[in-house]
């Protein structure tokens, strides 16, 4: 018992220090967003002035809208591709070229984004020279880039779920007369639905957040929110960005906490199911 207590004191300390490290910068950021002064770090009284400025900023609003649109389209596509890829890797057994396929799933996740971004850009340039298409860089090329990055993450999430799923459930469906395609839609898909949902969420935030790949693949008319933030932050601290960041943090917190709640509930259900089946 004594050992466990020693450990938990050390554990609590490290956890406390870790959380302080993780959250202090964010707290400072949020506090400064309510600073009346244009100089972000010089406190001049409480004000919501910069929020008002933010909501009047056309460039911010239009780039936010574009980012949301791209994120929705990219995460939808990457969930479709990622689910198929996860199924192929978890269920189809060995086939020629499988290790290359699995490698192409892992690589985009760790590959520095400057590399992925540049190489994709060069592909599109080459394609345009050869086929005249895509005529210019823009939403379509950004979408392709984001899908490629996000599908890797979605695949990993879905594959892990499929690997741990009891295969005999699918076999039972086959035994009862369902053909493979039907089994997928009637049995597999409903069972892995939570994994698909979290894959979608992950893809959505990744796409919404991506700067580097987007920078390579975007054209003149398509500035996403991260690009806009980046161009302003490069020039130094900016109270409007503090306000925008605060809203982002708040939105993400609400989303993650509620998603976590749903997940925990689903997890409990599954745990109960596993306990009952054991």
């Amino acid at each position: 018992m004594n050992n466990a207590n020693n450990l938990s004191v050390f554990g609590k300390l490290s956890l406390g220090a870790g959380f302080a490290f993780l959250y202090l910068p964010i707290v400072v950021l949020v506090v400064y967003s309510f600073n009346a002064s244009k100089l972000v770090t010089v406190w001049a009284g409480f004000s919501t002035h910069w929020y008002g400025e933010l909501f009047r900023d056309e460039a911010v609003l239009s780039s936010l809208w574009l980012s949301l649109k791209i994120a929705f389209l990219a995460s939808t596509m990457s969930v479709v591709l990622g689910t198929i890829a996860g199924l192929v890797l978890a269920r189809f057994g060995p086939f020629r070229g499988k290790s290359l396929f699995a490698g192409m799933i892992t690589a985009p996740m760790v590959m520095p984004e400057v590399i992925t971004g540049l190489s994709m850009l060069l592909l599109f340039v080459q394609m345009q020279q050869w086929f005249g298409h895509p005529a210019e860089r823009g939403v379509l090329t950004i979408w392709v880039g984001h899908v490629t990055l996000c599908m890797a993450y979605v695949t990993v999430v879905i594959r892990a779920r499929l690997v741990e799923m009891d295969r005999s459930v699918e076999e039972a469906a086959m035994d009862l007369g369902a053909r493979p395609l039907k089994i997928f839609f009637l049995i597999t898909l409903p069972i892995i639905a939570p994994a698909i949902a979290s894959g979608f969420l992950l893809a959505f935030t990744l796409s919404l957040d991506d700067l580097v790949i987007t920078a390579f693949l975007s054209g003149p008319g398509s500035t996403t929110l991260p690009q806009l933030i980046f161009s302003r932050v490069r020039l130094g601290l900016n109270p409007e960005i503090n306000a925008l960041a605060t809203i982002t943090v708040l939105a993400v917190a609400v989303l993650v906490v509620s998603a976590n709640r749903i997940m925990v509930r689903a997890e409990r259900r599954r745990a109960r199911l596993a306990a009952a089946a054991a």
């Binding site: 964010i26 770090t41 957040d209 700067l211 991260p226 601290l237 960041a245 982002t248 993400v252």
Partner: peptide, 15 residues
């Protein structure tokens, strides 16, 4: 914090 924007996290330290 990981789910919030990468840029926001970097920006937070600038302040």
């Amino acid at each position: 914090p990981f789910w919030t924007s990468f840029l926001v996290r970097v920006y937070a330290w600038m302040g």
